[in-house]
Amino acid sequence: MSALPSPQPQHNDPLIIAGKVYHSRLLVGTGKYRDLEETRRAVEASGAEIVTVAIRRTNIGQNPGEPNLLDVLPPQRYTILPNTAGCYTAEDAIRTCRLARELLDGHDLVKLEVLGDEKTLFPDIPATLMAAEILVKEGFKVMVYTSDDPLIAKRLEEMGCVAVMPLAAPIGSGLGIRNPYNIRLIVENAKAPILVDAGVGTASDAAIAMELGCDGVLMNTAIAAAKNPVLMASAMNKAVQAGREAYLAGRMPRKLYASASSPIDGTFF
């Protein structure tokens, strides 16, 4: 049996962001987990190489011996992607990125998000454009969270963002890919990697994003809020790979009527 050839997975299909080669197209967040051990196990099961973190005040005088997120996700092993979550102005986002670069010894890959509304967490596009322009000038490699507007996505790419990350649905909503046509238009026009960031709820959503031709998917809540986050991380790992392979394989055309899979000739009845 071992002589049978197995289908060749896409070994030679790397994701390249800012000149760096990645073999996983799933990027994961590290928020909302029960504890750091669950975070570590879920990230491990996801196969992700890029993990997002938030930048917050250090707790002063509380549990000085407590393990730190970067102890369980060492920057030597993972590409740490600090985000600007919680920032509602370009100024706050830029300040956060500068602090993150200092924190990570000059590592300049950042996830820019400038939020516009607390209820939907939709991005403030004018502020996002303003912050992106300054950060790119300052030498940051900007992966930018944006709406699913194809023109804005193109503009962000032209400004020099290293990846454009449209939402598929509101952050943490788990509603899935709400506007596949826009995501497709964004992908078709893009030269920079396009990653769906936000909105994925379950494995099929991630597969759909990849089948649309996205270069990757970034998610947090879909894994962290699952009943079994580690198992869901494993499911997402496979879904992203399956979706990518299906995209590369090229799906059959849709037809309204049936087409028999067994031959019509040679029937004896």
């Binding site: 590290t30 730190n68 970067l70 924190l103």
Partner: peptide, 10 residues
Amino acid sequence: VEIIHAVGGG
């Protein structure tokens, strides 16, 4: 003085 570190986030 502001002292910051990395915490879990998406």
